[in-house]
Amino acid sequence: MVLIGESIHIISRRVSEAVRDRNASVIQELAKAQAEAGADYIDLNLGPAKKDPVGMTEWLVNVVQEVTNLPLSIDTLNPIAMEAGLRLCKKRPLLNSASGRTDSKAEMLPLAKKYNCDVVISVLTDKGCPPDVDSRTESIMETVAYANELGIPNEDIWVDPIILPVSADQKQVREALEFIKILPDLLPGVKSTVGLSNVSNGTPEELRGILNRTYMVMLGRYGLYSAIADTLDHELVKLNRGELPHIVDLIYKAMDSEPIDMSSLSKQEQDYVKTTRVLMGETLYSHAWLEA
């Protein structure tokens, strides 16, 4: 799975202060650390970039490209900032993201064509996030058809099913998984991506990793092409490289509701089984899901 490092994110206080003070070293350290950890892309989350979108984006893209040759994912809903970023990218960038929203179709999708880049298209519409597989399907078919008409081929499109936190709406976790499963039949040739860490938003910080890692393996089983993820999570990168095959096997078994003798497992293995069952919606989520 292609990993897009999420750590340069404007919501992080360290990052937002570094951007405000134009402190290049903080940003460059984060970019280097993610590249060394195994990221394939570096995501630059600019947020709404209301103040000086062009100056801010150009600075950020330049300082990151000084220290890494990895391609960038320009992550903003602001089309002016987006264009400023795409224009400067040395490697073919990822436009992150467009959606089925009216403003996005009008302002974002044409940029993907203009700069001939890959583009994330999420299932969001003017009405928000579609609640189930069928409505996600309806939304994405419509938006991708629109993108095709603009001249963007399926091969350049990375579909995002929108991941919601398991602590907020457990059912949605399963819906997004099912959607990824059927996506290749719906739209042959498209790629896919998710904002992986969103699944653990709202969960106590020290417990987030295992939710992210388990869900990555589950989505990967159904062909997820890439994830915007915490590449500084060493175990996540190892799992993605296939270095922990027994954990992957266990997660698959739990997904298939195969009987598992918990007493024969280590604590780490038990935790992965419990987490899979929560993400599959088989057991009710609580912050204490690993303790039950």
């Binding site: 602590s167 009710l284 989520y285 609580s286 912050h287 204490a288 899901w289 303790e291 039950a292």
Partner: peptide
């Protein structure tokens, strides 16, 4: 909140 309800139960049951 059903998730908090379960969390408290899990902690109590120990």
């Amino acid at each position: 909140d059903i998730n908090l309800e379960k969390e408290l139960n899990v902690k109590l049951l120990k």
